[in-house]
Write a protein that binds this DNA or RNA. Sequence first.
DNA 1: TTGAAAGCGCTACCAG
DNA 2: CTGGTAGCGCTTTCAA
Lengths: 340, 340
Amino acid sequence: MKTISQRDIAKQLGVNVSTVSRALRGLDGVSPDLRKQIEQLAKAGGYRPNPFAVSLRYDTTRTIGIVVPDVAFNHNAQIMKSIEAEARNAGYMCIITDSNDLYENEVNCVELLVNMHVEGIIVCMSQDTTDFSHLERLKRAHIPVVLFDRVADIGISSVIINDSATAVEATTFLIDGGARRIAFLGGSNQMKQTVDRKHGYLEALRQHHIPIRKELVKCHHISFNSGLTDTMELLDLPEPPDAFLATHGLLAISVLQAITSRGLRIPDDISVIGYISDWVSEMSHPRISFVKQNLKEIGVKAFRLLLDQMNGDDSIQQVVVKARLELRDSTPKAKNSLIT
Amino acid sequence: MKTISQRDIAKQLGVNVSTVSRALRGLDGVSPDLRKQIEQLAKAGGYRPNPFAVSLRYDTTRTIGIVVPDVAFNHNAQIMKSIEAEARNAGYMCIITDSNDLYENEVNCVELLVNMHVEGIIVCMSQDTTDFSHLERLKRAHIPVVLFDRVADIGISSVIINDSATAVEATTFLIDGGARRIAFLGGSNQMKQTVDRKHGYLEALRQHHIPIRKELVKCHHISFNSGLTDTMELLDLPEPPDAFLATHGLLAISVLQAITSRGLRIPDDISVIGYISDWVSEMSHPRISFVKQNLKEIGVKAFRLLLDQMNGDDSIQQVVVKARLELRDSTPKAKNSLIT
DNA sequence: TTGAAAGCGCTACCAG
DNA sequence: CTGGTAGCGCTTTCAA
């Protein structure tokens, strides 16, 4: 891993390192002739500036950190891919860390990234994160942070979708399709995302004068199994749901499987709408009608917000990437829906 | 982002930095009393060793790089997740780069990682990579490298599955199920993985004295669309296939869709087996019988190989993680199969 | 146009 | 047990 240094070049030419430094960075104060020679030697020797020396000088690493609950979850992976592309394009590398959707790990990930002196951190919090002190500490240390998807009102810039509005749209669509007992499956009520989407769901019910039935709302820990048991319980009700709105991919899939395993037909017996990635929808069977999120844009926006902060902008911004209902096969065909 | 340094502590205590350095690293040569004070100040001031200073000193970054064709592809994402977990456990952070399955990007990714002075790189090559000089350069520079999935005989350690054997197993199973016109969909013939799997496929045919029909073998660029058109073409043959073996997730899914779109039934009319992740199989409909790979183990083994190299072991190893056929719903139920 | 020297934060080595 | 000093590779400032 030997790599040639400025000093090596300087020595070979019998000049001073500072001259080499200037030449290599195209600064003034080097005779064209010398510059040529230096550049030539640099190329020949495969010179690469030592990033640590540079970082040490400037305390700048051209590196950002990403914390996500699950790297392998398609939704996150797509956003990561987008962040990485955008970051690389801007000359930054990405360090990824996977919190396994656990608060403790998340804190650890943030800590490690800080120790690495990343210039900024993009975080999707764990579902059980209710203590934000690790993020507030970053803020206090003036380390740029951006949250996405799962956010909190702690004065940190973030990127989300129009959670409430999409829930209204989805729920309304189900109602228009004839559903009257719409179940809502979300994550913990501690998560703003869950609350917002539930808010939209309830709002739509109210607008249509449909009584709210508490037993149709299940907001628990997000996991495939919890989704399965919740759905089973719902199907066992004396008046089981005629539609489901699931706010997470795992939940949506579990709903699908539970319903199918009961021999019920989708959408004939029960409709389903989920907050899932296009890819998951495409793969599901029947293909789940879903709230389509522009994951690429979420990633791009997240990085841009971070970049702004890294460039000194300390305003707190909340970017809302508009999502909209995308119909597939888990909902009845729209007759006169406003959605086109 | 101000962080306290050893010098700050030294100054406050009126001692020398070298003493602080020793104390903070638990080395001998510091009075218990002084040590206490130093540790206390360090904690109070939130002291963090500056990784660049350390790196500059040791040329060690506690960082590895990962290059994959597509971060969002579940197979890769699961392996990355596993690598990241293993790496973090060993005190390393991971920088990810996504080559978009393009050779040019791949070269660029490797270059950037080298410039970052990562201590090692784990690579899954792009499908169009036929020039390995960028990797050979790493080898020459003694930068540890490990390949996975897509490998080449260039004297670099790697982790693969038993490609040929699994293809034999899958093909044999199809034959036992009554299939006689088995189509093979792979990537480019430049990829060893494709060649090996095709080898297994052909071997199984030979063993059962089934004539090899060249028109049933499609080895092209891997993409959803190419899989779709290839499958359509195959279905249009005078004697269309009665089974498909697809060596990549995108191809397997496209095969499924193409067949279904023609109104043919799986597995009644046509059987399908794919090299896909368990998760993709679970999501597909009908659930595709697949060659089940232990992705977690692939990641773990890849990192371990890298770690060995980083620790000075310069032997070239090829780890084969055994995969095996896992039956789902895209193949006829086994009657007297040896597979249990 | 070029050189010398200081310094970024840390560690290693040798003195005292 | 503690201090001083040199040096990792690079940039910057000042002097020549």
